[in-house]
């Protein structure tokens, strides 16, 4: 049940990116979460509104992309599908494999709402007169 902690981590990242882009809101968050990440997408979805309440991302849609588990065998060089508790090479059965997909816990993209300073309006020109060019 550490998904709430993960959500708070996600929120601080989202807030940072939103700040960097001077965003007024976050509309969509796309994550990639693999079965080997130790994080359960269903619980993440449930915990997210608790973490995001009152934040810039409170009304954002949280989308979670699943990732299939795939391994690369260092013995026979084959790439194959695997399951969380059986990460062996399906071609030769060797255990010396490397997970190439399935342990992701990544924030991929954010869709931000940005209120642009209008360039061609009086307000924009006045703002630039006071503060200099943005």
């Amino acid at each position: 049940m550490h998904e709430l902690s993960v959500c708070y981590g996600l929120l601080s990242q989202v807030e940072r990116v939103a700040r960097e882009h001077a965003a007024t809101g976050v509309t969509r968050i796309l994550l990639q979460v693999g079965p080997l990440s130790g994080v359960e997408p269903r619980l993440l979805r449930r915990a997210w509104p608790v973490a995001a309440a009152g934040s810039v991302a409170a009304s954002a849609i949280l989308e979670i992309e699943a990732a299939d588990i795939r391994v690369h065998c260092s013995r026979c060089d084959a790439e194959s599908a695997a399951t969380a508790n059986r990460l062996l090479c399906s071609a030769c059965g060797d255990y010396r494999t490397r997970v190439i997909s399935g342990d992701e816990l990544i924030l991929k993209t954010l869709e931000l709402e940005t209120a642009r300073v209008p360039r061609n309006t009086d307000a924009g020109q006045e703002h630039r007169r006071i503060h200099g060019a943005l």
Binding site: V6, G9, L10, Q13, V17, H21, A23, T24, T27, L31, V33, V39, L105, I106, L107, K108, T109, L110, E111, L112, E113, T114, A115, R116, P118, T121, D122, A123, Q125, E126
Partner: peptide, 24 residues
């Protein structure tokens, strides 16, 4: 606006690629 009247609100959406671990 400078004259105190309301200008039309313009809200743009922007997609930002982050590609960071969730626990960064």
């Amino acid at each position: 606006r400078v004259d105190g009247k309301l200008a039309p609100v313009r809200v743009d959406t922007e997609a930002v690629t982050v590609l960071e671990g969730l626990l960064a």
